[in-house]
């Protein structure tokens, strides 16, 4: 029996209202994201990559269609969305989006605090995540004291620390030089292979696309190509 996809989108569409003009950002999207996938949503600027990622991350709502998370329809229930985001989704932003008043350790620990993980269990998970991204020696540093690559590593640690079902990354290498971007990509590939963490990227970085197991190419808000590597 085929396992239930982690996330399934069924005929999902998204429209924006800009004054009296209606802009269709996405239309008729059908996607299934399987466990342990390493998916890239590719496309030119304005093709709808970020909108699709936002819908997958439940930080935006579709105007049509249905999103299923672990087989369960998410719907419009804000509390349910918050619970799924808190427990099952990690998010990595293009601009890192670390909380500046927290140090590295606190930024990574924050999702666990939200989940109610306390004491030594929390410490162990944070230390492990920091070790996985190679920043154990930077735990006391504030984000402003880190390089761009280090900040993105902290963001990755924050995303994986709670062992989410899926990590969504919005152009994670776009603000990094190619060498650092490569290191970050290698790290995420390693996490996917060793821990089985599911990753979904929005990117037009050929380096990321080359490593993808699944590539979804968008054009004008529609899926132009859906390719699963052999």
């Amino acid at each position: 029996m085929k396992p239930t996809p982690l996330i399934r989108m069924q005929q999902v569409g998204k429209q924006y209202h800009l004054g009296k003009t209606v802009v269709t950002a996405l239309s008729g999207i059908d996607i299934s994201i399987e466990h342990r996938d390493f998916m890239v949503i590719a496309g030119t600027s304005g093709s709808g990559k970020t909108t699709l990622l936002n819908l997958l991350g439940l930080i935006d709502s579709p105007t049509s269609g249905t999103i299923f998370f672990n087989g369960e329809s998410v719907g419009d229930d804000r509390h349910k969305q918050t619970r799924i985001r808190r427990d099952s989704i990690g998010y990595i932003f293009q601009t890192f989006n670390l909380v500046p008043v927290m140090n590295v350790y606190e930024n990574v620990a924050y999702p666990l605090i939200l989940k109610g993980v306390a004491g030594s269990a929390r410490r162990e998970l944070v230390e492990r995540a920091l070790s996985q991204v190679g920043l154990s020696d930077r735990r006391k540093h504030k984000p402003r004291e880190l390089s761009g690559g280090q900040r993105q590593r902290v963001a990755i640690a924050r995303a994986i620390v709670k062992d989410p079902g899926i990590v969504l990354a919005d152009e994670p290498t776009a603000n990094l030089d190619s060498s650092t971007g490569g290191e970050i990509l290698d790290l995420m590939t390693l996490l996917n292979e060793e821990l089985g963490t599911t990753f979904v990227f929005s990117s037009h970085d050929p380096m990321i696309i080359a490593k993808a197991k699944t590539t979804v190419r968008l054009h004008d808000g529609r899926i132009e190509q859906y390719e699963v590597a052999a």
Binding site: I59, H79, R83, R86, I89, N97, V99, P111, L114, R158
Partner: peptide
């Protein structure tokens, strides 16, 4: 505002 968006996206409830 952007930071609030980040906190909400990682699962912080609106009440929190």
């Amino acid at each position: 505002t952007r930071e609030i968006g980040t906190l909400l996206s990682v699962g912080t409830s609106r009440a929190q």
